[in-house]
Design a protein around this nucleic acid. Sequence first.
DNA 1: ACTGCCGGGAA
DNA 2: TTCCCGGCAGT
Length: 499
Amino acid sequence: MASVLSRRLGKRSLLGARVLGPPGAAPPLEPQAELLEGVAPQPFLASKDTPCQEQPKEVLKAPGTSRLQQVAFQPGQKVCVWYGGQERTGLVERHSWAEDKVTVWLLDQKLQICCKAEEVWLAELPGPIPQVPEQGTQAPAYRPVSRNIDVPKRKSDAVEMDEMMAAMVLTSLSCSPVVQSPPAVEANFSASRAACDPWKESGDVSDSGSSTTSGHWSGSSGVSTPSPPHPQASPKYLGDAFGSPQTDNGFETDPDAFLLDEPAPRKRKNSVKVMYKCLWPNCGKVLRSIVGIKRHVKALHLGDTVDSDQFKREEDFYYTEVQMKEEAAAPAGAPAADPAPAPSMTSPPLAVLSPPPPKAQPSGPEHPGLESYLPSAALSKSAPGSFWHIQADHAYQALPSFQIPVSPHIYTSISWAAAPSTASSLSPVRSRSLSFSEPQQPPPAVKSHLIVTSPPRAQSSARKTRGEAKKCRKVYGIEHRDQWCTACRWKKACQRFLD
DNA sequence: ACTGCCGGGAA
DNA sequence: TTCCCGGCAGT
């Protein structure tokens, strides 16, 4: 809830900021300001709101109001001023209320100017200037909504000020291009949305960094950014970007629009978390971080002594990713909704296939069971840092994405982002999907290297022998055919329950 | 008889 | 490209 709230506040604040925005826009705004005032008289506003555009409700109107009724600029405050035909950034030196003049120290000019207060506006306004003029039409439409949200008089003024200042700092920090993850696609998206919405980001962060939501992602973007600086933020942006096309006025991407209309189908990918499960027999420990699981495997199972070169990264073979849905139960028809099915999915035949790690199992667990565990992990990570992933149970239709070599982390975001989210198939399928790479799927390249040690059967063009694994038909029954994986429905090789 | 899925064809 | 299904082969 808190996150939602903060996001809302953020949005509203941004809106307000925009209204205040560019220098040229001041006159047109006048009517709005008056209008607002009529609705909610707030005597204290004029003097309070200035420093911070992030303030929720007050700011909303404040900008308009203050612009017209004179804001008390604080000395040292960073502002923008129209000077010499361009916008300049500077620090407020002094604000002469009586004369309605503000003395500003221009940073880039290294000179001090004195100008009318109305020619000065706060620097941290995020909205790109060109957008503003059009907002005369849009902003009012949203405003009532914001106004209706009950966020009135808050705390003491002093506290308020502090918060504002803090918000300012945060805002400017997070608006800095350096912080905004620059790489590739994300950069584009975030840039287009004025790259400044700290509230929104922080609002959603609660969902943990490892969450693959997202989105989104969607799509291919994840591929290009192996380590996004803002793991939490990027998916959202992606989602947003896809959900709300950047159009004509550039206003579409405004957070407010976001707030009001978007169902943003892809934005919250059912909040799935990626966990890492230890595959060591009788362990099954699940950890949140890859580092953690590696450490766990190394320390507990492999032992610290085995980290000779030979066993380097050996721990990679002993854990697997597990996707866990936040909302507990898997939807109806998925009886197999076991959150951690990975181990049981591997097929015995594969065990033969798998190029065993160059060493004999240390402390080797004897059960044949392990045999079947390891291969799966081995397959998925046999080339550390890259493996192939079949996307969801519809992989049959989505072979292209199948071949993307990525790191496990990326993979998750990709698959989640791009996959048509069929709730029922989520947990069981995805977690499994990363533990294999072999069935009759095409990528010859992959196969070839896997097949090296494989028995002749694999090469023969003969029909695949029937696997032991349950298939969709068996699991769901004919009456639930709609829950089968696509391939099964088409009488193709099952993509969900691989052999 | 049932099941998995290849191969091929229709839309 | 997506979807469907005849028919083969394994169980």
